[in-house]
Nucleic acid binder design. Structure first.
Lengths: 191, 191
DNA sequence: AGTACATCTTGTCGGTGACAAGATGGTGCG
DNA sequence: CGCACCATCTTGTCACCGACAAGATGTACT
């Protein structure tokens, strides 16, 4: 849906979006400023507003992109591995690799969560996540599927959040993948 | 550590802190403004800065208070119930009942996480949480304690976060306590 | 050629955080 | 009692930001 033809700048929308993700990765959403992004792109201070309407619009675009990336990552992991644990690992890996997107996605007060593009991408990600759960819930004498899905999602989401906040003990090491496998294995007691 | 004697206003520090929590509960951290808090307290726009130095200073005070409340809630739950699951329930209940504190606490870019008051309260909360884990890890043929603690913490933290974001399916009902019991029971397979 | 349009610029307004300097009032000490 | 000290609060200011309006510029299409 971005314009196909470069005009004055080239592709300002994409440039601003990329710069926004970079700033978010370095400094967090509180430091994000449309005027700063405009300066980085070498355009006037009001140029970004034309593409995103307002700051919430920019963050809506970030969230939409994030949900699309997450859905892609989860479906890929789901198809590559039979084990749902790897879908959980992919979830944490996404959070670590795309911290900026992840932090915006789960801060609905910063953007417009009911944006149609966001909603469809989020639904796609949810399907990939719950689809992976269905397989593992069928193996054990497990409880009903939605509950197991919520438990699995809560575990990996909480782990990712705490990992990003440096709140977890250092004994877990510095590789989020192996740490996730160790911790998530407890939930599915496949140790 | 706040001043014991009221001066001009009465107790401006406490008034601003309370108002800040109220605003955070209603509108989130992005809408928080020192000048607005000053207006609500009926003082000049620069008065709050004297007590907190800085916006980050105000949020540091909120985070410190939050960690103290959390530590109190967790130790109370730990002493009242033998089951660790109830500590997890208390964790989620704290997040729901003190949403403003919870959201600030786990957003370290908003305040000064290395503030001594914050650090001690956080340590106290962590002790209460991990102390509860030790009991349950001893029951099962469970893996080592820190891993189980991280898993339990991740689960309740993720559940609380997702619950606050209205990201969870509506089939869980509207009572966070019962929902937490149902979901957390899966991890400790005491169903 | 000329119109329609998306893109970008310039200018402006109210609001905010941070800082500096000064006014105000309580506290304690001689 | 007088006075100096200090915490508290006020006033004033500056740079920055988001949002909006109006105009300029380049592109596409007829």
């Amino acid at each position: 849906m971005p314009p196909t033809q470069p005009y004055h700048h080239g592709d300002l929308r994409q440039a601003v979006l990329t710069a926004a993700v970079a700033v978010l990765n370095e400094s967090g959403p509180a430091q994000l400023s449309l005027r700063d992004l405009a300066r980085r792109a070498g355009v006037s201070h009001a140029a970004p507003a034309h593409h995103f309407g307002d700051k919430a619009g920019l963050l809506t675009a970030v969230a939409a992109q994030g949900y699309q990336l997450l859905a892609d990552a989860l479906t890929a992991a789901q198809q590559r591995h039979a084990d749902f644990l790897e879908v959980g690992v992919a979830y944490v890996r996404f959070a670590v690799d795309h911290r900026a997107h992840f932090e915006v996605m789960f801060r609905p007060d910063l953007y417009r969560p009911d944006d149609p593009e966001v909603a469809t991408a989020r639904q796609r990600a949810a399907d990939a996540l719950y689809g992976g759960v269905r397989s593992v819930a069928a193996t054990g004498r497990g409880p009903d599927i939605p509950l197991a899905g919520v438990a699995a999602w809560s575990l990996v989401h909480g782990f990712a959040t705490l990992w990003l906040n440096h709140a977890l003990p250092t004994t877990l090491g510095d590789d989020p993948e192996t740490a996730t496998r160790a911790v998530a294995a407890i939930l599915f007691h496949t140790t």
